[in-house]
Simulated assay, not measured.
Amino acid sequence: MKLAGSIVALITPMDNSGAIDFVALGKLVEHHISSGTHAIVSVGTTGESSTLSPNEHLEVIDATVKLVAGRVPVIAGTGANSTHEAIYLTRQADELGADAALLVVPYYNKPTQEGLYQHFKLIAESVPLPQILYNVPGRTVADLHNDTVARLAEIDNIVGCKDATGDLRRGKELLDLVGDKISILSGDDPTALEYMQLGAKGDISVTANVAPKAMADMCAAALEGDFETAERIDKTLRGLHNDLFVESNPIPVKYAVAKLGFGANFLRLPLTAVSEEQRPRIDDAMARAGVL
């Protein structure tokens, strides 16, 4: 499995009652594959993993794997702040046919670096599925340090790290430490191109939900070393990179994807729909990206 390019952190479409809209999910999957998206993350943060029940979580992964039907890799979000829960979800994702798992740093309980190392090590030892570490300290509070990633990179089925810190200096250090052992992927759209210029292999992207072809083309150009083309494309996406975060993700992107006709603009509490005052900013960013 190649971990590279534009990897969409896919929303979970819902109808106006809050039920998962599997018809819209099917249309979204086809839209991404026809647009050139290189891989799909199912039920990550952007997929509202925190408000889905465990059964729903697995139903969405199962449906996504079946809809994709092997055409691109499916990466299942299976992280949790309980190691045993993360093992359970990762094992289930493996049985459902996911190509890899994305494991967020445990949130709220604030483990030490040794606790983080033991957490990810035990998951990797318990489930043979290829696994991608996911560091997003702005959400989890706990921060997976680069030297801990280096320890974990020695484990065979830990194959990547999604770095959503947005800190390019730190990212360069991470690439120097483990870039020859595992795939380093940006998890921060505004700095993704710069990170790829440093050597990151791609971007697990929120923006790709709204502009999948442009993100796929940008990442492909960057991977080929054609940074002039990549920068030209990225310039059209900068509004989305920024304005899809005017309120907490996935609030703005859910609005934008619904506006494109994929499901309703519905989020489960405690998330609420994007405020009326922010909608013109998102509309304008979509227009500048050429998707409206």
Rank of each mutant, 00 (worst) to 15 (best):
Y134K: 08
D15N: 15
P106W: 05
E56I: 13
L129T: 12
T51M: 08
G97W: 14
T37R: 09
G18F: 08
V65L: 08
S6I: 13
S6P: 04
K2P: 15
L129H: 06
R91T: 11
E56G: 07
G36R: 02
G44L: 14
Y117T: 02
V41F: 12
E114V: 04
H57N: 15
V74E: 08
S53D: 09
L102S: 02
G18H: 12
V68S: 14
L52Y: 12
I87T: 10
L58F: 03
K27I: 01
T64L: 10
E85L: 04
V8C: 05
T64Y: 02
S34Y: 01
G79N: 11
H32Q: 11
R91C: 03
G47M: 14
L102P: 00
A80L: 07
Y117L: 00
G5C: 09
N16M: 07
L67A: 14
I75V: 13
K66D: 14
H38E: 02
S42T: 13
A69G: 06
G79A: 06
G36L: 01
G47H: 11
R91E: 15
L67F: 10
G44A: 13
H57Q: 12
A63F: 03
N135W: 09
V68G: 12
G26A: 03
Q131P: 07
M14D: 06
L25P: 05
I20H: 08
G70R: 06
I123G: 04
R91A: 15
N16T: 12
P54A: 15
G70D: 03
Y108N: 06
P73N: 09
E114P: 01
N55I: 13
E30S: 15
S42V: 02
L3H: 08
P106D: 02
N16P: 00
V60I: 07
D15V: 04
H119Y: 15
R91H: 13
N16H: 04
A76P: 00
Q113E: 14
I40R: 00
H32F: 15
G36T: 04
G79S: 14
S82W: 08
V72S: 01
